[in-house]
Computed example of a mutant assay.
Amino acid sequence: MPARSASASIASTLQQRFAEQLAERGLTADPAQQAAFARLAAWLQHQLGGRRGWLRRHSGGVYLWGGVGRGKSLVLDCFFAAAPLEAKRRVHFHAFLQDVQQRLLRFVGQPDPLALVARELAGEVRLLCFDEFHVHDIGDAILLGRLLQHLLHEQVGVVLTSNYPPAGLCPNPLYHERFKPFIRLLQQRLTVLELDGGRDYRPLSARDWGRYCWPTPAADTHLAEELGLTPDGAGEVLVVNRLRLQPLARSQDTLWLEFAALFEVPSATADYLWLCRHFTCLAISAIPSLDQRSLDVQQRFLNFVDIAYDSGVQLLLASAVNLDQLCVARAHADFARTRSRLAQLRPLPTDHRESQAC
């Protein structure tokens, strides 16, 4: 088949596979999702077309952004599955950041170790799909910004999804100015697409990834029944990296902690990743109204929910307040995404007349 004909068939094949994947899930794409996938398919066709293919016609990638629950991850999932490349990888923010930091350790003492990490990644993947791209910590922002610069130089195709337009990344006014060069890089090297406004589809999802129960103390009672564990807090201390945790209860696959034990201490994303790798069910009780907690504590909780959601663990939460009251007055910038994900948690049955949402 001539190169041009083979190239021309890529986009149509991807579109066909998109329709098939949606049909298998019992879903139908709305017009905005269809348009976004069509643009991704056209970009990949451009990348793979021509006699010399990718290396001759490399274009940086696609930056797909929009409100929570609009189907960005669904579009990316289907695009990634359909892309006719072996050397491809789909990553989530926190796990990828930890992977990069571990790779950097291998190049300590060498000139520009981040460029060496990018070269190493370029030897493994030609297409990197990055879901839920968001940066609030300036250290993470600068690290990922420079890494993306190196990856684009190495001609790695990059597809990013985000709740923010490029100009809205790293919104803290103390740090935003320092991140502007990388914002310009994204705007200049990537095709920026908005998956425009519409309904949040997440609450309609059939996914059952856990429970949200309120208010305490009835919530704790139902949590114990659901887990089949009795909280005593007298078990062996669990050492996670540099963190020492006192579980309320645990079994081989299940861990039950109080909110304060995990989030009102200097815990980190590496700790949450470790927990999600070693337990299939995580329970957190005594969750207060987040308005009463510092932004650092809120950020830890949001990071934990992101990691738990992406890792596929079962999450059981018991709170003093219902989901609508969890964070109202002093909501963190990323809370809308977390709220959307928590809305997919199923209620626990209860006879308590005030806990209809539990």
Results as ranks from 00 to 15, higher is better:
Ser5Leu: 15
Ser5Cys: 13
Ala6Met: 15
Ala8Met: 12
Ile10Lys: 05
Glu20Thr: 12
Leu22Ile: 01
Ala23Gln: 10
Arg25Thr: 02
Ala29Pro: 01
Ala29Ser: 06
Ala29His: 00
Asp30Asn: 11
Asp30Arg: 09
Ala38Pro: 03
His58Gln: 04
Gly60Leu: 01
Leu64Arg: 06
Trp65Asn: 07
Gly67Phe: 10
Ser73Arg: 07
Leu74Lys: 09
Leu74Val: 12
Ala82Leu: 05
Ala83Asp: 04
Ala87Glu: 13
Arg89Asn: 04
Phe96Leu: 10
Leu97Pro: 11
Gln98Asp: 13
Asp99His: 13
Val100Thr: 01
Val100Met: 07
Arg106Trp: 13
Val108Tyr: 13
Asp112Leu: 12
Ala115Asn: 11
Leu116His: 08
Val117Phe: 04
Ala118Met: 05
Ala118Pro: 07
Ala118Asn: 05
Arg126Leu: 09
Phe130Tyr: 05
His136Phe: 13
His136Val: 11
His136Arg: 12
Ala141Met: 03
Ala141Gly: 05
Ile142Cys: 09
Arg146Thr: 00
Arg146Gln: 09
Leu147Ser: 00
Leu148Asn: 08
His150Ala: 12
Val159Phe: 02
Leu169Pro: 00
Phe179Ile: 00
Leu195Ala: 04
Tyr201Ser: 04
Ser205Trp: 00
Ala206Phe: 11
Arg211Pro: 00
Pro215Trp: 11
Pro215Asp: 04
Thr216Asp: 15
Asp220Ser: 15
Asp220Pro: 07
Glu226Lys: 15
Thr230Met: 14
Asp232Cys: 11
Glu236Met: 13
Val237Tyr: 07
Asn241Ser: 10
Arg242Lys: 13
Gln246Asp: 08
Leu248Ser: 09
Ala249Glu: 02
Ala249Gln: 06
Thr254Leu: 14
Glu258Asn: 13
Ala260Ser: 12
Leu262Phe: 08
Ala268Asn: 10
Asp271Pro: 00
Leu275Gly: 05
Ile284Tyr: 13
Ile284Thr: 02
Ser285Pro: 03
Val297Phe: 02
Val305Ser: 06
Asp310Asn: 12
Leu315Thr: 04
Asn322Thr: 01
Leu323Gln: 08
Cys327Gln: 15
Ala333Thr: 08
Ala333Asp: 03
Phe335Trp: 09
Thr338Asp: 03
Ser340Cys: 05
Ala343Trp: 08
Pro349Gln: 13
Pro349Cys: 10
